[in-house]
Write a protein that binds this DNA or RNA. Structure first.
Lengths: 256, 256
DNA sequence: TATTCAATGCGTTATTATGACACAATGTAA
DNA sequence: TTACATTGTGTCATAATAACGCATTGAATA
């Protein structure tokens, strides 16, 4: 099917495949060279950037829909992914944004299911930046990373969704070691610290940080040091998922 | 409109008023005589208990829908209310459960929007038990409190929704003083402790508890003691919402 | 080749938070 | 009057945290 046909079909008949009124939007975080980034797509119809999103198949679990979208954008399969908030402002509709675009594609009908109000579920994903190959979706002409302090204007309420995802990530970091999902399998202590500092947006004491992380027991030091670095070479560590799960059960965070 | 007509109309034409495929279910917590309780309704069509729920008007914010449902069930207006999770199992449908009921009401059409798959957003509410007058909704013949260790069998996945709400409440209790929403304006320290013990399901040390609560500064002692009690009379306290919000901003819970 | 220097590994100390427990005060009931 | 359950207040040992020192490493520089 040609691009135009595909689009047209989506607008006219998409509601036979997908649930109406409900969408999923993903805030995909990555970490690269000391910077926290988010993956965005540029929506053709708006010429603006947006969170990668999609719809839920009529017989599909929402979590799977999110997973599918992520797989398509990043190529990654086994991803840390969770819903964090539902956005349901009655004004959520791309009708106005869409119309010029549809004319361009040769579609005049403005009674598409796509123009109706949408409630969207925000999903937050943490991925290993180095393993991602950004791929735009059908209605986008670009897919790229942006530093979290450098996100462009976005369609609809996507800026707010992103903001909430970031807040959510910060909250979680204190109690769940979610940060590890953002790093490669092997990482150094300074890298891990930089990640924490970036997410929390504050400086941490190097020595206290190391002590705290090690005391949780969720990282194991490898008999290997980073070679290609100037100055003293740091050790590699790996995330010990079994100890992590044990710690989770015992209840990380403090108890009254 | 008669009851039968009202029901029939809801099944046949409800989708003109409400969004399809999306519902809201509320887990309403109350606290009474040292016991944590949840408010349930008994669905006529199933003869089983269920969480109070409802649908979202075509032009209504989801939070308002939840608020509306709560107002209708409890009579309360200003309520601590928040979404906690979306449940989207593709099998979520009351079709089978509904059918006998509809025959009874004289409705044969089984192509109702009500039979389609529903994604539901779970809302958690904390209310002052003493101020609630439970009111059943149209399709329910009862509305009552149940101890959280004593909930009956429920329709669909409502047991799971309830379970997640309880877990969520426990998690939150450590970092946000949500518990205060479950108590009357004036309360004693032993009452507050009992509430915490009930929610967390464990004993706490009386003296350490008091110290910790007071150290947060979110409660103020009143110059008043409980009179109608045997043995030593405890002081009354009140929740200081301004100090609470200040504490929240400063970030309750621990920082890395 | 020796020196500099940024970054890392490892450690110390003061302060604060927490958990476990003691004892006096209150007011009803025996 | 006494016993008793319950509350208010305090102490102490221990653990967790924050702040900081110093030696080590190894490429870059003199």
């Amino acid at each position: 099917m040609s691009f135009e046909k595909e689009i047209k079909d989506h607008y006219l008949n998409g509601d036979k495949k997908f649930l109406r009124h409900i969408s999923v939007d993903c805030v995909i975080f990555g970490f690269h060279i000391g910077e926290l980034k988010v993956l965005l797509v540029r929506a053709r119809y708006a010429g603006k950037w947006a969170l990668p999103g999609g719809f839920i198949l009529k017989d599909e679990h929402m979590d799977l829909a999110a997973k599918r979208i992520l797989k398509n954008r990043t190529g990654l399969d086994d991803i840390y992914l969770q819903q964090f908030h539902v956005f349901s402002d009655p004004g959520r509709s791309t009708k106005k944004i869409n119309q010029q675009f549809l004319k361009n594609v040769g579609l005049k009908n403005d009674k598409s299911w796509m123009f109706e109000r949408f409630i969207t579920v925000g999903y937050s994903a943490l991925v290993d930046f180095t393993k991602v190959t950004p791929v735009p979706d059908v209605i986008s002409d670009a897919c790229d990373w942006f530093g979290i302090n450098d996100v462009p204007e976005m369609i609809l309420d996507h800026s707010q969704i992103f903001k909430e995802a970031l807040q959510n990530l910060r909250r979680q970091l204190n109690f769940h070691p979610v940060g590890f999902n953002l790093l490669p399998k092997k990482f150094t202590m300074p890298e891990l610290q930089k990640l924490y500092e970036t997410i929390l947006d504050k400086k941490l004491d190097r020595r206290n940080f190391q002590r705290k992380i090690l005391s949780t027991g969720i990282v194991t030091r490898l008999n290997e040091i980073r070679k290609d670095v100037a100055h003293k070479a740091p050790y590699f560590y790996k995330f010990d998922i079994r100890k992590y799960e044990k710690a989770l059960k015992a209840g990380m965070g403090f108890e009254l």
